[in-house]
């Protein structure tokens, strides 16, 4: 199966390990990976800040980039949710609206793709330790992907899973919110880190680079002995 990878700008620039893990994992599961060099950012930072005009240029670039792909897969629920929003954003533009619709329909978040399209529930991963999982808001609420990550994590050998208290609460990232409303963001991320600590987990697993940078950044700053891992890295551990 040919899979075109939408790596996301954060993974490309800041978390290349997540990109590598995604490629290796999908290849191990029998996929052939294509990474189009012309991909940029999905436009979400500008779009969510209200700069719709500016963000549309990035969106058009992404629509063109992935136009011929069979499946588009990305290790980020939030960025996939943005792709799913494209048809709504271009709804008054017939030509782009149609292309946006095609892109939205063939785009999957990584765990969703593995469980729903590849029909694999055990990827044969092993990671020893206690873990908890942060259910990102865009991934669960906007994209509706709730069970796939749990199914896959439950089958990771050696992983002892504890549910995160207050798991449905936002971590306080929110893109530009994290710097525009830094003071409020700090309270939110602190509460999240406290909950992570309460679980006694060695690993905090996430599926969205933004949330992970936020929670991970606070964990690092406060010197807590918790390792933040993307679910692709966990599923690629053997």
């Amino acid at each position: 199966m040919k899979v075109t990878l939408f790596a996301t700008c954060l993974v490309d620039m800041f978390q290349s390990n997540v990109g590598k893990a995604t490629v290796e994992l999908l290849e191990r599961l029998g996929c052939e990976i294509i990474f189009p060099e012309s991909q940029v950012c999905c436009g979400q930072p500008a779009y969510n800040s209200g700069y719709v005009r500016e963000s549309k240029e990035a969106m058009k670039r992404m629509i063109r980039t992935f136009q011929n792909a069979e499946y588009v897969v990305s290790p980020s629920g939030s960025c996939v949710a943005m792709f799913k929003e494209y048809p709504h954003i271009f709804k008054e533009d017939h030509e782009w609206g149609l292309l946006a619709q095609q892109l939205a329909e063939k785009t999957y978040e990584l765990t969703q793709f593995i469980v729903d399209v590849l029909h694999i529930e055990d990827v044969g991963a092993q990671l020893n330790g206690k873990a908890t999982y942060h259910t990102s808001c865009h991934m669960t609420r906007l994209l509706g992907v709730k069970s796939a990550p749990m199914i896959l994590l439950n089958n990771v050998k050696g992983l002892e899973y504890t549910e995160l208290p207050g798991k449905e609460q936002c971590c306080g990232f929110g893109g530009t919110f994290s710097v525009k409303m830094a003071q409020i963001s700090e309270q939110m991320v602190d509460e999240k880190v406290t909950h992570v600590e309460e679980t006694g987990a060695d690993y905090l697993i996430g599926a969205d680079a933004g949330c992970m940078m936020n929670i991970g950044g606070r964990i690092d700053r406060t010197g807590k002995p918790i390792k933040v891992m993307h679910i692709a890295e966990v599923l690629n551990s053997r």
């Binding site: 620039m13 800041f14 950044g217």
Partner: peptide, 19 residues
Amino acid sequence: AWTEIRDFPAPNKERFRDW
């Protein structure tokens, strides 16, 4: 504003696309 409360990751010298 970000780094007043949290660390920010340094950009990877080898980007994913380079790898």
